[in-house]
Design a binder for these strands. Structure first.
Lengths: 237, 237
DNA sequence: CCTACCGATCGGTAGG
DNA sequence: CCTACCGATCGGTAGG
């Protein structure tokens, strides 16, 4: 393990030094791009989530997927890029799940762009959004999404804006629902505050909710979800 | 800046190597214990809060208080010890603030140990607790307390239990109030869930509330506080 | 994606 | 609390 002195290869100036990492064609055995990239993403998410970004080394991540340290840099240009990719993955997955759920209300992907149609009950839609949110946060995407919540401080202002745009996309429908409810006098406070409080209560669950206890069904999630609904609605059932 | 070879002082084996750090008497100019320790604590809190524990170096902290890197180890045995001290400081301060506030309700420091006296209105007390909590979290101890919320993952299970005991101490009165309200049928859900949701909504404010906007008075805090009250209470005013 | 590295930094310590 | 360090690690890179 001693570091031996070695002649460094002279920088060859005839052709510009083109790095091997640039090209997509596989040079070795099995570089299964999509799979390996996703594996890295998942391991990174898992570790960032549990140990935090700062306490996770790129070696930790590589080892988890059975790679050698430097190899992750074939897929991601830096540790920070991995963090961003994890957050983006979580958000786009969340958005996707939400779009699917909205279909059962006859709503398309652009549902957040305009006021709610008259034929949807905002109370029922809110309940569904909340239930779906908990499902994403605590079950389906429990590795990815919390990283965004916990590691917000690890982003630069510019990076935050980027992630923020995706969050806005996710929250657009919520805003419509809350506005509709507020107009009907059914919110305990103004829309903006209601949204912040609601997401506060919901997102905080990722700190105390343990999957293990209610595995295989997520029974208790219904309880949390309905409590959250009643939180911001007037006229309790 | 080149690192020159130097003869290392031979370990003198006659007397056991006693480190200078062990004794409390000042060996040099101005080691103003209490002050310097607190200064370190404050700087650490500020940096841990803004940049996260992992992204803050012991040098960052030392520089902020005008010390040289190694000197912080005179006051704290490790970076981790600094983190723990920050969290403990935040919690004990919070507990202290809360005890003071409770006096105006005729309640002593042990108010959380037994059911609430008949003569206190649980609704008013809850409102006061909430308002006070926001004041601690966002104004008075805004450097210390959020570190505990944000850096929970940086603690070992054992360390978490230690901090957890202080949290329980802080939350004891809250539990009494919530139990009282639940018995009176004024909570939107069961006590345990109400507590989690409420603290979720409240603690989350440290992520979006900016002091700058409402400085000099914290006007808007009242709005947030009253909204939070209405969140978990039935029979909205 | 592996091998074989490197420069910089970082937490921490000895001794005064 | 300062000076003067050190060992280990860490993010990252060149070249194949």
């Amino acid at each position: 393990m001693t570091r031996t002195e070695k002649a460094k290869p002279a920088r060859q100036s005839a052709t510009p030094p083109k790095r091997g990492r640039g090209r997509p064609r596989k040079t070795h055995d099995e570089i299964n791009d999509g799979n390996r990239r996703l594996a890295l993403l998942k391991s990174a998410a898992k570790l960032f989530r549990r140990k935090s970004f700062g306490a996770t080394t790129t070696r930790d991540i590589a080892v988890e997927v059975g790679m050698h340290n430097g190899s992750s840099y074939y897929h991601f240009k830096s540790k920070k890029a991995l963090l961003l990719a994890v957050m983006e993955e979580g958000l786009t997955r969340g958005i996707r799940h939400q779009i699917e759920m909205l279909q059962s209300f006859g709503l398309g992907p652009e549902a957040g762009a305009a006021p709610l149609p008259k034929n949807v009950d905002p109370r029922r839609l809110l309940a569904a959004l909340i239930r779906n949110h908990l499902d994403i946060l605590l079950i389906k995407e429990r590795e990815f999404v919390p990283v965004m919540l916990f590691e917000w401080r690890s982003l630069t202002p510019h990076e935050r804006r980027g992630i923020g745009r995706l969050q806005d996309e996710y929250e657009a429908v919520w805003m419509r629902v809350l506005e509709s409810l507020h107009r009907a006098g059914q919110l305990v406070c103004e829309v903006k505050l209601a949204r912040l409080m609601l997401f506060g209560a919901l997102n905080w669950t990722s700190r105390w909710f343990e999957t293990s206890k209610t595995e295989q069904g997520g029974l208790d999630l219904d309880g949390v979800a309905s409590a959250a609904s009643r939180l911001i609605l007037i006229e309790k059932a």
